[in-house]
Each structure stands twice: as structure tokens, then as C-alpha cells.
Simulated scan of single mutants.
Amino acid sequence: MKEITFINRNKARWETFEQQLKKPSKVNPDSLADQFIQLTDDLAFARTFYPRSHTLRYLNSLSQKTHQEIYRNKRERGSRIPAFIKTELPLILRSARPYFLISLVVFMAAWALGVVSALTNDDFVRMIMGDQYVNMTLNNIEKGDPMAVYGQMAETPMFIAITFNNVFVSFNVFLFGLLTPLGSIFQLFRNGVMVGAFQAFFYQKNLLGVSTYAIMIHGTLELSAIVLAGGAGIILGKYLLFPGTFPRKDSFVYGVKKGIKIMIGLVPVFIVAGFIEGFVTRYYNTMEHWLNIFIILASFVFIIWYFFIYPEIVYRKFKADKIN
């Protein structure tokens, strides 16, 4: 749909809504919230199809005024969250797919380099993981429980600590995008090398299968989310470094908002990954094999579905709705 057609079809509604905002005391709060959801849909559509237009700026300004009015009345409806999950975030995720792909390639390349480096240099693992961790793991291997690290703390404290660490690492990867995309790429590379070296270490001890089995119970979500956070960081750096026709400040603000929304969508993933690592992973060698495999496959299917397949479905439906 051409931008002028999009404007003509919705201009009257936007202008009416804008007039209503000038007299907020006469607007029903529930009606205001309903119209805000429609405006959010329009904004998401404009971000997807007209990312550098005055229409996007206008809708963004109007949505901010509406949000402020709803918040001022303290009557914001819970439907804002479902709309974000069902429509706004998926459209952002679809537009971010190229950056997710770059992030994945960097992470996998770093993973491979970590493996090769650990296999060719006996001191590399200690350089990356630290002597204390390596010595502790060697001691656990001698005791017959190579992954005992996952059972050293009680479930709840470990869940809290792991979740906090996962969120910290992911936001660290994201915020390094402030140093241009190379900042996030560096952090992705660093984390990828660590994972590769870790796996190579267990391969050398003939325990690759055991370590992979234990790690991927929670790592399917955790590592996937770090890669996606890397993509969000690359977006942040891209809009800062390459503003295009936008003023650099406006481009940067747009990149920050887009990246933060992706990160907000990832926080629940890290919480679930932390829960699994704190409460489930410690039982990897006593649980039924089918249950371990189910958790890994379910995690993988969720990531592929919500972050890649579902955004395409939403995009096509949204485009069709706007054209019809």
C-alpha cells in the first residue's frame, strides 16, 4: 500500500482522536485505551512500511500523547500488553531478522574458533574459563559428576542468580551497540568463544555428549536469547552510525526504542531459562530421557515459532488487513 493511501484511509480517525485528546475530561478512559490499541497497530504498520516518513513521526507523537493521558488517569488497560506481544513486537522482530542472522553467524563463528583454539592449545581453556573453574570441573569429573556445578546451590537462590546473570549478560551485549555495531559483535564473539572452548574441554574428556545434554536443557533458550540480544545491539549501533535521511538524534532514538522492545520481549525468555537451569538442569542425569529431549525441543520450537515464523504470519495478515 502506498503511504498516501494509508494516510487517506486513516487521516479522519487520527484527526478525530487528536481532537478528543484536547478535551481528555470528556473522553471515556476505556474508549481511550481502545483507540490507543488501534493507534499502536497503525504505528507498527508505519514502522514496517514507512520507517523514515513524517507519518511515522506523527503517529509516534500521537501515541506518546495518548499513553501519557492514559497513564495520567491511571486507567491503562491490560490489553496494551497483549497488543504488544501479538502485534507490535512480532512486526519489530520481522524487520530485525537480518540483524539476528548477522548475530547468529558471528556467534557460531566464534563458537567454532573457541573449539579450534581449545583443541590446539591446552592453556586456552584456562585463559578463557579461569583456573578456578577448570580445576573445579576436573575435580567433579574425577568424582563422576562432571556437571555437578548445576547442583552446588539451592534451587531458588540459583534461579535468582542465574536469571540476574543472564539478563545482565544480554543487556551488556545489547548496550555495547552504543559503541557502534562492532561493540555488540565483540561481546557476541567473546561469549561464543567461551561456549566453544567449554564444549571442546568436555570433548577432550570424552564427555561432549553429557555436557551438551545438560547445557542444552536450559541453553537452548539462554543462548538463543543472547544471539537475539546481539541482533538488538547491532540495530542500536546501526541507527546510531547510519542515520540515513533522519537527523542522527532521531535515528538513534528510534534504534533505542526498537532495540529495547526486543530486549523487553527477551526478558521472559531469560527468566524461563534461569528457572530451568536452577530447578531442572541439576536432574539431567536422573530424569527420563524423553523429558530432557522434550524440554530441549519445546524450547527450540518456541524460539523458532515466536521470533521467526509468527512475525511473518503477523506481517502478512497485517499487510492484508491494511490493503483490504
Rank of each mutant, 00 (worst) to 15 (best):
Y203Q: 08
F124Q: 02
V115N: 12
P98S: 12
L236W: 07
E142F: 04
L266R: 12
G144A: 06
G255R: 11
F49L: 08
F176H: 12
F300Y: 15
A96T: 10
A109F: 10
F246P: 00
I128Q: 14
Y315Q: 02
I235Q: 09
K261H: 11
F17R: 09
F308K: 04
N191Q: 07
L297G: 04
W305S: 09
E288S: 14
E69F: 05
G130P: 09
V272D: 04
V27I: 04
R97D: 06
Q204V: 02
L175S: 09
G219I: 07
E76R: 14
T180Q: 12
T55H: 02
L182R: 06
K322T: 06
E312P: 01
N165W: 04
F49V: 07
G192E: 06
F49D: 10
L291D: 05
G230A: 07
G274P: 11
F189A: 13
F302N: 01
F84I: 03
T180H: 11
T16Q: 13
V267F: 10
L241K: 15
N206Y: 10
Y150I: 05
E312I: 09
E312Y: 11
W305Y: 10
N60D: 04
T212L: 06
S95D: 03
T245F: 06
M108H: 03
N8V: 05
K258A: 00
I162E: 08
H218F: 03
N292E: 06
L119W: 11
V301E: 08
P29G: 00
G183M: 00
N135L: 11
S95C: 01
S61M: 02
F159S: 03
I271F: 15
R77I: 00
N8G: 01
V115P: 04
H54V: 14
N135W: 00
M287C: 00
Y310N: 03
R248A: 15
Y71L: 13
I37V: 15
T40S: 15
G244Y: 05
L266G: 03
S117P: 02
N324Y: 05
V134W: 11
K257H: 05
A12F: 11
I185P: 05
G209D: 12
G192R: 07
V253M: 13
D145C: 00
F198P: 02
L101H: 06
H54C: 03
I128K: 08
